[in-house]
Amino acid sequence: MPDSPAMTHGTQELANSADPGNAANSAHPEHPPYLLHHFESAGQQADAAGFAMWLFLLTEVMFFSGLFTAYLIYRNWYYRAFVAGSHQLSVVWGTTNTAVLILSSFTMAMAVWCSKTGRRRELTLCLTLTFLLGLGFLGIKGIEYHEKFEKHHVPGRHYSLQSFLYPDSDAAARAAGDRPLPLDDARHTEVYFSLYFLMTGMHAAHMVIGLCILGFMILRARAGAYTAGHATFVENFGLYWHFIDIVWIYLFALLYLISRH
């Protein structure tokens, strides 16, 4: 059924006054190629994607919060076991890894800037650096995991209490000046290492996913994507990468630095 002409006119007027993006859009009918059909303007699209990314990070916070809750409770229950467990971690590797990840966050932030300012070669460079630093982080993590594996500190059937019952037999425990733990406390180190592997493992899983996306982005960036005014994808990936960085900042403080004095 046809509308009254007056009604249609009013419709247009209201549309223009209520939504400047829409008005600008109807004034310039040609859309940028990346604008999806159901959005009215590129601004709306970028806003929606950015907000969606933040909501996704919100879910990530909640995903990790279960682990942090568990950590907090068991740390208070089994403080001595947690201290002894943390002495088995290498502060040197941990600090190096923190620095590596912060550096990769920096290169990622630079990549976003390059993307926004249309620097194509620099964008590829920054993304590649981020990728390499991320790989480096996982490599160091792998070295640390390997060490735990060799000392039977992976929870499960082959978990060994050697380092905690007889700290003199263990270089790391000796260096930290650990005294032998009673059997009860020593057994609770398994809870510490469960949480250690869970938290760093979840974090590493996020890193792996991030690296896969990053590799894809590098290929696209070399082909010239992301620098023609549409930086949303790089920007949102940057948010994800920085979020991983933040998680690690807390994991480092909580797992490595419980009590070193």
Binding site: T59, F63, F64, G66, G156, V191, S194, L198
Partner: peptide, 28 residues
């Protein structure tokens, strides 16, 4: 929902690998 996701992960890992987050025998 993310909290149930991590909880289900913990259940699976506890069954598969024997980590001790919910296991009273290990202090969970």
């Amino acid at each position: 929902t993310p909290v149930i996701a991590i909880t289900m992960v913990l259940i699976m890992l506890e069954r598969v690998t024997g980590i001790g987050v919910f296991d009273p025998a290990k202090g969970g």
